[in-house]
Amino acid sequence: MSFATSSAGHAKAFITARVLTGARRFPVRVYVAAFFMAFFLIAAIEPKLLQTHDPLMLSLTSPLKAPSLTHWLGTDQSGRDLYSRIVAGTGHSLSIGLGATALSLALALILGVTAGLSGGWIDNVLSRLFDALFALPTLFLALLFVSLLGTSVPTLVIAVGLGTSPGYARMVRVQVLSVKATSYVEAARALGHSPRRILFKHILPNAISPLATMFTLGVGQAIIWASGLSFLGLGVAPPSSEWGALLNAGRNYVIYAWWLEVMPGIAIAALALSVTVVGQYVQQRLEGRIELP
């Protein structure tokens, strides 16, 4: 009996050692990030699987309870389970983050590539437009769209997407310009390849690949912007538990119940970080670049 236990213990220790030493296939941070991403994905698609309570169920007997075994992350002023509310709000936050970033980058790509490739007056006009928009604070642009379109999830997506795109567009343009000037593009020209082939085989892939990292960083940023708008009361309205709305609701009680602010904040940070870490890792693998220590 004792023999069996110890061998099981050894096996466990061996596996842990393999995970922690050089024998592993992925770095530890990727495992951690992937775990969080999987958690948030499940929470977004099927929140009921992960919830311990009904996120909308009020309980007048247990308001502002600190984190415990029954309420993992505590409860809010109405006795609702914070953990379940965060899980319920994941879908909103994640879809706003992905949607806004996708919209922002799509716009940035179209305009940035057009500006970078065409040059001349088209480039001048577009560049000045990017500069002008970039000079306005993102939050200001987003507020403008929210005030024009009203508050809802699609509005948040559009507001944050449009608000963040000028910065990306400028980056895309510079990328295209710098790739256009490389000697491998010239080498392709010298070989007699057509401009279309050069565009699709060299310029676009090389101009876009840094954007993959920007995308993953952007998702985190967009979530934070959206949360910011919700925090200002311009995002998704209560009783929805979008993370920014949670922060907004908890701010009045922060002196008595720190978890109302800290836990949604950690959720925002964890999602933004895990998307970034996994994104960067995937990009490194795809590019076959040697990883720097």
Partner: peptide, 23 residues
């Protein structure tokens, strides 16, 4: 017109690394 005949004349650069697509 040149594109078809570009294969007749090719080039070697001083810095080969930058003349290859890094990907």
């Amino acid at each position: 017109e040149r594109r078809q005949r570009r294969s007749d004349i090719s080039v070697i650069y001083q810095d080969p690394l930058s003349s290859f697509d890094p990907r």
